[in-house]
């Protein structure tokens, strides 16, 4: 008998159990999927409106209407994946710490970070994922430029890198509940941070924008989450700036760095965990 469980099997069981649970509360599931999808459509309408007044997001940036829709679709795909797999779990992690229910996770012969991070899968968020894919296909069809095979292969890789960076940030943040006792600002913080990742990085310039761009590229690398895969697919600027080659390399390093940092914070948190009354 092997000492390690099959992580894939456990993940599939999590997915299955979550689905069984979601189906039990069918109404809740449908409302969830519907409300988040309507938020997406309202957002989309807002950008359609903006492009009624301007052909491009910032003069000379190359982000025209459909290029930007590819960017938007990428945001949607990445965020929906994070929400499907990690958001509820990170949120619940704080609660597990506060109530002492993390005890049970620590008893199991399986990686605790894996168990805590993927325990519940939010199937209703996959509605947005589908919308994202449709928008991506639609927008790509409207652009003259069509991506080559290398770009099509690298795009999902960088989408996953983006998901990993956002996940790392989220789980590290949730782990701080161990020291703070309570950290309920997760959703708020999430919204503030991802707000910066929602726009092409070219818009961050000038005396205020440049420092922002540096901070959110190198310190908390949320700017590269969407920018790298989206730029790779639509090449808003041609010929390309030198950073278009450097950024993807940096993105890989940032992904590894973020995951390692989150694992470190998580490990420290578990060591400081003090459980709660019986």
């Amino acid at each position: 008998m092997s000492e390690h469980p099959s992580y894939l099997r456990v993940l599939l069981t999590f997915a299955r159990n979550s689905l069984v649970r979601d189906m039990t509360f069918r109404g809740n599931f449908l409302i969830d999927a519907f409300s988040s999808m309507s938020w997406v459509f309202m957002n989309l309408g807002f950008y359609v409106l903006i492009f009624e007044y301007t052909p491009m997001l910032g003069a000379g940036t190359g982000w025209g209407k459909y290029e930007f829709f590819v960017f938007l679709a990428t945001t949607l795909i990445i965020n929906s994946l994070v929400q499907t797999f990690f958001m509820t779990n990170a949120d619940e992690f704080g609660e597990l710490i506060r109530t002492g229910s993390l005890d049970f996770a620590l008893l199991k012969p399986i990686d605790t970070q894996f168990l805590v991070s993927l325990n519940r899968i939010e199937w209703s968020s996959l509605g947005n994922f589908a919308v994202g894919l449709l928008l991506l296909a639609y927008a790509l069809g409207k652009i003259d430029y069509s991506p080559g095979p290398a770009q099509l292969v690298l795009y999902p890789v960088y989408v996953l890198c983006g998901v990993a960076i956002l996940y790392s940030l989220m789980i590290a943040l949730a782990a701080t509940s161990v020291w703070l006792g309570r950290n309920q600002t997760l959703y708020d913080f999430w919204f503030y941070i991802t707000n910066f990742s929602r726009y092409p990085m070219e818009i961050y310039r000038g005396p205020f924008g440049t420092p922002l761009r540096r901070v959110f590229t190198f310190l908390i690398p949320v700017l590269i989450v969407v920018n790298v895969p989206a730029r790779m697919l639509v090449r808003p600027l041609d010929p390309r700036a030198p950073e278009d080659f450097l950024l993807p390399i940096f993105a890989i390093l940032a992904t590894i760095g973020s995951l390692a940092a989150s694992r470190w914070v998580f490990g420290r948190a578990l060591l400081s965990y003090r459980s709660a009354s019986s």
Binding site: M1, S2, H4, P5, S6, R9, V10, T13, F14, N17, K108, P109, I110, L115
Partner: peptide
């Protein structure tokens, strides 16, 4: 839940 335990404990 039991099935999940089966997998975690292999």
């Amino acid at each position: 839940s039991f099935r999940l335990h089966q997998q975690i404990y292999r």
